[in-house]
């Protein structure tokens, strides 16, 4: 309660950060919806390659990277004009990818051929192909850039990889169908969501031991309906949001005590999420209701549903 009040007070005094653009990939209508974080409305819809999924914005905000999964490439858009500039060599069927702090390297999970492609963005050159488990999916780079993590859906592992030599450091077995990996801002923990297992494993980034396994018992729902996928963490590392797929809810987890503070009802089949840089809003892509839910982070309340394209999956916020 006190924490909530403090958060409210903090919010009142936060400086107005100005509008941010939110980019949403629509897997079935093959386009990108651009949302203005001030007006909370779609300002533009841009055609993308077939089956757009993973999406990220470069650290300087100039480029938008979109996995066009069925075209085996990563498309680069100029965020000022939203024109397609070029398509990068991603390896087959790219789904999710991580980016280094400088924004010049992409680490791409290739679902079809059990490898991670490391790509030099400027040269559009593949600098490494790292073999991993079957159906690689989640990708995360540690905040210091030293460790790369990939999760493989069928092998059910989080693979720790040296980001310089690309040698495998360790494999950690998690629950079924791990979909997403997330480092806490201090780099001490790695959170891995298991879609079929219905859990999130919190792994110590140094010892590679699972320190906590989170289950989500949403009242009135069967265990099968709870399928954790996308995750986001606040900048202070204190709160993690977990999208629960067909449970149509986002779990709000206290990252220190692992207590689940709230389940917020959002749209239908929630996949991935994005926080605005000022952390005022969390946007969730809801694959079956074809909309994006806006969550007021201070109040932990869904405040709006914004209709987008068909089957929205990925969301990214532009840095301010």
């Amino acid at each position: 309660m006190i924490a909530l009040r403090l958060a409210l007070v903090a919010c009142l005094f936060a400086s107005p950060a100005g509008a941010t653009r939110i980019y949403v990939t629509n897997e079935k209508s093959n386009d990108i919806s651009v949302i203005d974080s001030d007006t909370l409305a779609v300002t533009q819809t841009v055609k993308a390659g077939r089956r757009p999924r993973g999406v990220r914005v470069s650290p300087d905000g100039k480029w938008l990277y979109v996995c066009a999964s069925d075209e085996d490439g990563i498309q680069v858009f100029d965020t000022a004009s939203m024109k397609l500039l070029r398509t990068l060599e991603s390896g087959p069927d790219p789904e999710q990818f991580a980016m280094n702090a400088a924004g010049d390297l992409l680490y791409i999970a290739n679902e079809d051929n059990a490898q991670v492609t490391v790509l030099d963005v400027k040269k559009n050159q593949v600098i490494a192909n790292v073999p991993v488990g079957v159906e690689p999916e989640g990708m995360a780079l540690s905040p210091d850039g030293a460790v790369l993590v990939n999760t493989s859906e069928t092998t059910n592992m989080a693979h720790f990889i040296d980001a310089k030599t690309f040698a495998r450091i360790d494999n950690v077995l998690v629950d079924k169908r791990p979909r997403y990996a997330l480092f806490t801002p201090d780099g001490s923990k790695l959170w891995v969501s298991s879609e079929v297992g219905g859990t999130v494993s919190v792994i110590d980034a140094k010892t590679h031991q699972i320190v906590k396994k989170l289950r989500f018992d949403v009242p009135g729902l069967t265990r099968e309906e709870v399928q954790p996928v996308g995750m986001r963490v606040t900048g202070d590392g204190k709160t993690v949001f977990v999208a629960l797929g067909p449970a149509n809810r986002v779990a709000v987890v206290d990252a220190e005590t692992f207590e689940i503070r709230k389940y917020i009802l959002v749209g239908q089949r929630v996949w991935h999420m994005a926080l605005t840089p000022d952390e005022k809003y969390l946007f969730t892509a809801n694959g079956n209701s074809n909309d994006v839910t806006v969550i007021d982070v201070a109040a932990l309340k869904a405040i709006k549903s914004i209709p987008v394209g068909q089957a929205p999956l990925g969301v990214a916020a532009a840095p301010n």
């Binding site: 949403v218 009242p219 009135g220 729902l221 069967t222 099968e224 309906e225 067909p246 449970a247 149509n248 009802l265 239908q268």
Partner: peptide
């Protein structure tokens, strides 16, 4: 194949 749509999945 899933069972009936549960109340809790769509109603808060």
């Amino acid at each position: 194949k899933t069972g009936a749509i549960s109340r809790a999945a769509i109603w808060a």
